[in-house]
Amino acid sequence: MDLFDDLPEPTQTAGGCMEKTSQPSAVDRGEKRKCQVTEEQEEKKVCKGLARLKGYVSARRGEREEMQDAHVLLPDLSSCLPSLPPQVCRLAYFAVFDGHGGSRASRFAAEHLHHTLALKFPKGEVENLDKLVKKCLLDTFKQTDEDFLKQASSQKPAWKDGTTATCMLVVDDLMYVANLGDSRALLCRVEQEGEDECKKCVTLSLSKEHNPTCYEERMRIQKAGGTVREGRVLGVLEVSRSLGDGQYKRCGVISTPDLRRCQLTHNDKFVILACDGLFKVFTAEEAVRFVHSVLQDVTVEAREGQTAEEGRFEAACQRLANEAVQRGCADNVTVILVSIQF
């Protein structure tokens, strides 16, 4: 199975303008380069046109005694890096973690995963950046899992927490989604139908659910000596991949994420990252249509300091989480809504 599934290629190139991020210092004069990039050229490169990303979050504890979800919104991850490769202008990072067995694994992932990612991100002049970013994501998940398990095993009694992870890393306008477990990522892309210019909202899945009932997942678990009973690993764990869950690692539960890659286009409107609490009462298409309908509601009032569009995005995020609770979801519900504007 190829972990590096690409979503449909864009039909047009990106446009617009993005605020300049920090750039690495100029190379030494003695270094041979075909082209010396001046500050003016660098500025033009940065402002050539990146999608503007803004994240909104809504979290509900539901009927659970504890909030075990965690989330991260970092529209400028470059602030965590000393420098970026010369060909990269912007890094953004958004993530949702759905803990089980406690909240320690999800909190640990929210606090540490992006820092590990920043340390492992390619530096300096590099070739085949795409391949290196994918390796960086895989290594980051592995390292985060190992670091948490080391801390968990040192406790008395040992922590038995685990967490799903759905992380969205945007390198300029190329989006990578790495996920473990059953939290999900969805992209809303508006496409034109026919010559009458009628537009429809298309839902693209950016993640893959890791359920022990899936054939490939079940086979791996059984080969490792584990069993799947009533749709759960050893009759207990609902997911077949996770961070943490040290007691299930010997049973075939792994921390290797699936990776998806997608070029952002002018037709892309927003991304939803959410834990499974949302999808217990919403299908993917229903969730996207719900958000899209709120964004079309011109009666939504923005808070002071917000634009009308920002007010609608925030309202859509809050209303989606509220609707999940009203539909009877008793689980924790966390929704991240990322707006995409060119």
Rank of each mutant, 00 (worst) to 15 (best):
C17P: 04
C17A: 10
M18H: 09
M18E: 06
E19C: 10
K20P: 03
T21K: 09
S22R: 04
S22F: 02
Q23V: 00
Q23F: 04
Q23E: 03
P24G: 07
P24T: 01
P24L: 06
S25G: 11
A26G: 04
A26L: 11
V27R: 01
V27H: 00
D28N: 12
G30K: 00
E31S: 00
R33L: 09
R33S: 03
C35E: 09
C35I: 04
Q36F: 04
V37W: 05
E39V: 05
K44N: 08
K44P: 00
K45N: 12
K45W: 15
C47V: 12
G49P: 07
R52M: 07
L53E: 05
G55H: 11
Y56I: 14
A59V: 13
A59W: 03
R60P: 07
R61A: 05
E63H: 15
R64L: 13
E66P: 00
Q68W: 03
Q68Y: 02
D69C: 00
D69R: 01
A70V: 00
A70I: 01
A70D: 06
H71P: 04
L74Q: 13
P75R: 02
D76P: 11
S78N: 13
S78H: 14
S79T: 10
S79V: 14
S79K: 11
S79H: 09
L81H: 06
S83N: 06
P86K: 15
P86E: 15
C89K: 07
C89G: 13
C89E: 11
Y93I: 02
Y93M: 02
A95K: 07
F97H: 14
D98M: 14
H100F: 14
G102A: 05
G102H: 01
S103C: 05
S103H: 10
A105Y: 08
A105G: 04
R107N: 13
R107P: 04
A110Y: 08
H112C: 03
H112P: 09
H114K: 06
T116P: 06
L117Q: 01
L117N: 02
A118G: 12
L119R: 13
K120A: 02
K120N: 15
F121N: 06
K123I: 02
G124N: 10
E125V: 08
E125I: 07
E127T: 03
E127G: 00
L132C: 03
L132Q: 14
K134R: 15
K134N: 03
K135L: 10
L137K: 01
T140A: 14
T140S: 15
K142R: 12
Q143N: 09
T144M: 08
E146I: 03
D147S: 10
D147Q: 15
D147I: 06
D147M: 12
L149M: 11
K150P: 00
Q151I: 08
Q151V: 07
S153Y: 10
P157C: 08
P157A: 10
P157F: 10
